[in-house]
């Protein structure tokens, strides 16, 4: 067995240190080592987006990043989204729009929505559909998810 790697990173604003096997993905590290099970495994090969997290400002699938790669990096996961004032606007608009049914794709979609609106605060329906094409949802038909992301835009503007 290969030697474990020592990794120091910032996860949801907190400094974190861990040991991992080189073969462990970032998703495995988050879920199994750090007990952050909000990021979900849907496919484990980068085709469903259920494990979407934000790595140094970029949306990635945690299942196809190695845990060892994040040394010195900053990672944001669904668990870090809620602030002292409560739910993040996207979390709130997902609830208000009934944008989840089973909810297993929801953390990935919310992280994707966050990354999008940080880049493009006035994203259109078309922008959202294009941006979220790597996030599969099998329950909702996407309609209410798209609406929830649009609805979060003015709230995020106000927050700024």
């Amino acid at each position: 067995m290969a030697a474990k790697v020592h990794v120091t990173a910032t996860i949801n604003g907190e400094p974190v240190e861990f040991l991992c096997e080189p073969r462990q993905s970032l998703l495995e590290v988050l879920r199994d080592e750090l007990k952050l099970t909000g990021s979900k495994e849907g496919c484990n090969n980068g085709n469903c987006g259920a494990c979407s997290v934000i790595l140094d400002g970029l949306l990635v699938d945690a299942c196809i990043v190695l845990g060892a790669e994040i040394d010195g990096c900053t990672v944001e996961t669904i668990e870090g989204l809620m602030g002292p004032e409560g739910l993040h606007p996207l979390q709130q608009t997902f609830l208000e729009n009934a944008a989840l049914q089973c909810g297993v794709c929801t953390p990935g979609f919310i992280m994707a929505g966050k990354a999008l609106l940080e880049k493009k605060p006035q994203a259109t329906e078309g922008d959202i559909r294009h941006w979220c094409a790597g996030n599969l949802c099998r329950c909702t038909g996407y309609d209410k998810i798209v609406r929830a992301i649009i609805d979060a835009e003015p709230q995020l503007e106000v927050k700024k």
Partner: peptide, 9 residues
């Protein structure tokens, strides 16, 4: 190439 997440990597 891929979706947003893939293009970022």
């Amino acid at each position: 190439i891929g979706g947003t997440q893939i293009q970022n990597r």
